[in-house]
Design a protein around this nucleic acid. Structure first.
Length: 555
RNA sequence: GCGCCUGUAGCUCAGAGGAUAGAGCAACGGACUUCUAAUCCGUAGGUCGCAGGUUCGAAUCCUGCCAGGCGCGCCA
């Protein structure tokens, strides 16, 4: 419907302005759903936007555009030209009702499109260091990444998801030393815990595991060096991270190890290549990349005076390698505290002849956990934090994922644990899930009364002409555009808000109209509408990675 | 000091050039012998941080200021 209207206007512009100037051709046609229903089902400000270039009054332009619309449109009730120059479209009921059979026929495919044309995107997210369990902030990134994966796939892109593992350098050393110290403590030795060591309980658990394995096998004392503990710790923590993500419903296509990057010599090669291009210089014993000539604030060290590679060096190599693997677009999801790295990474890509715009970094603001109305203090270093695992055990996957997606990533998020597990109207998750369960429940009752839901005549929709039914049909028909916008703008929270509105409309409808009743034909119509609502809710929840239960029983 | 993000109802947030700025929660008053009341209805609630500017039109764009968060290492 939306597409048809846009096409209609494009044609009208062509007819109105015979010699079509170039700046007219690429003027975007914006079609909105007016807040006030007296302004029609759809409206456009096209005439007002055109008035500058055409040097005519908006009202005149609007009128001549409307005059050039075909007259034989059986799906349009009327067109209005109003005050400053809006064109308002009023659709016939049938035009809105016709979306219902489409939804029911397409099922889970409804809402998808192919605008991505199979473009290949590499989406990197979470990428938490394997030095400790995932915390709540990683959960937000994971929920966002998972939803974006689904959204981009739904709009025709080929998406590969990747988790970059910083399994090298000082932090792995610190991890090893931390475990080693705990291990020796368990053996009764008094060992000084490293100053910057990881203090969490999980370190002790890992040490205990090692001790247990040790007691059965005779380990040579010499094999228990730091690198042994590092490697063991990395594996153990990685396994936990993978399990956590699994229960959170997130799967990665690749787990990309920094260590492997260095081992293959890719970082070294890159630095050599950059040196050859004169992008690198030596100062005070270190190697510096001239990132400031590519928009960064200052130059950055890639190899320290002690010969160690910086994190940034392998990050450059990693991202270059992503480009070389053939992805047209790279999307990274980072915590907002890393925003300072965006510019230098783009600088690196640009200096090597790649378009920095190919890389999009989504910065996710911090999450504050709230319990009993107060923020929960967290510090990774001190080992005081609530893990994603604990949150999942407490509130469940669905509530967690949904709540993470109720905000723009730009906005900081207060995650209220008590609210998330409340089975009440304060909790937005159940509101939407309940609408779906309600649809299923109505359909079940209908079946028990002899309605054959699976073989309803989908053309029986003409009885749906109450304002509530019109509104529902229209909102359902906006779903594909909503998916498209959410994907293009990389903003899954739009789907969350859409869902809230759809659920609200259905709950209202349910409370004001009886779906199953004596009038068989009307019942059929309303069952079709309900089925369509259920389908769209389920599709949208799927995009968010939240389940759509068919029954909900209050505990 | 510099950079990024944010400032919208009591609280948490949508809205990012258009028409009378919206939702949820909280508050107050109502609706269950009914297809699930995890629902619904009604009431109330606003100087869109402040000040200029751009234009037919600004919560939205530009500039300055104020407030909060985060960053500004040869840390990761």
């Amino acid at each position: 419907m939306r597409d048809q209207l846009i096409q209609l206007m494009q044609e009208a512009i062509h007819v109105t302005q015979k010699p079509l100037s170039k700046n007219l051709q690429d003027i975007p046609i914006v079609l909105t759903v007016p807040k006030n229903e007296s302004y029609g089902d759809y409206a456009t400000n096209l005439a007002m936007n055109l008035s500058k270039t055409l040097k005519q009054s908006p009202m005149k332009i609007a009128e001549s555009l409307v005059r050039n619309f075909p007259t034989d449109l059986n799906w349009l009730e009327k067109i209005e030209v109003v005050k400053p120059g809006f064109i308002n479209f009023f659709l016939k009921d049938k035009a809105l009702q016709d979306i219902l059979p489409v939804i029911i026929t397409q099922k889970e495919a409804f809402g998808q499109n192919q605008r991505g044309k199979g473009g290949e995107i590499l989406l990197e997210f979470v990428s938490a260091n394997p030095t400790g369990p995932l915390h709540i902030g990683h959960g937000r990134g994971a929920a966002l990444g998972g939803a974006l994966t689904n959204l981009l796939k739904a709009t025709g892109y080929q998406v590969t998801t990747e988790y970059y593992l910083n399994d090298l350098g000082t932090q792995m050393e610190t991890l090893g030393r931390s475990i080693q110290a705990r291990f020796r403590e368990l053996q009764g030795e008094v060992d000084l815990f490293p100053e910057n060591g990881y203090k969490g309980e999980y370190i002790k658990n890992i040490a205990a595991d090692i001790l247990q394995e040790n007691s059965t096998e005779a380990f040579a004392e010499s094999s228990l060096d730091v690198s042994f503990f590092s490697r063991y710790g990395r594996q153990a923590i990685l396994k936990d991270i993978q399990e956590d993500l699994e229960t959170f419903g997130i799967r990665f296509d690749h787990w990309f190890s920094e260590e492997s990057l260095v081992r293959q010599g890719l970082v070294e090669n890159l630095i050599q290549a950059m040196e050859d291009k004169g992008l690198i210089y030596r100062k005070e014993g270190a190697l510096w990349f001239k990132s400031s000539t590519f928009g960064d604030e200052k130059d950055r060290v890639v190899v320290r005076a002690n010969g160690a590679l910086t994190y940034f060096a392998s990050d450059m190599a990693y991202h270059l390698q992503k480009v070389n693997r053939g992805y047209q677009r790279l999307i990274d999801i980072w915590g907002a505290d890393h925003h300072g790295y965006v510019q230098r990474l783009k600088a690196a890509l640009q200096s090597l002849g790649h378009d920095p715009k190919a890389l999009t970094v989504i910065l996710v603001q911090l999450v504050t956990l709230i319990r009993e109305g107060k923020p929960v203090a967290m510090s990774t270093r001190a080992g005081e934090f609530i893990t994603l695992r604990e949150v999942l055990d407490e509130v469940g996957k669905d509530a967690a994922r949904y709540i993470f997606l109720t905000r723009r990533s730009d906005s900081p998020l207060d995650f209220d644990l008590d609210l998330a597990k409340k089975q009440s109207n304060e909790n937005p998750v159940y509101y939407v899930q309940y609408a779906h369960a309600r649809v299923c429940s109505v359909l079940d009752v209908a079946r028990s009364q002899g309605f054959e839901i699976e073989s309803l005549d989908l053309t029986t929709v003409h009885r749906l002409n109450s304002p509530e039914e019109r509104r529902l049909c229209k909102h359902l028909s906006e779903y594909p555009e909503e998916v498209n916008q959410a994907a293009m703008k990389l903003e899954p929270h739009r789907i969350t808000f859409y869902l809230g509105e759809l659920a609200a409309q259905f709950h209202y409808y349910y409370n004001h109209h009886r779906i199953i009743q004596a009038d068989r034909e009307l019942s059929d119509s309303r069952l079709i509408l309900s089925l369509a609502v259920g389908t769209v809710i389920k599709n949208a929840l799927n995009l968010l990675g939240v389940s759509a239960p068919e029954k909900m029983v209050r505990e």
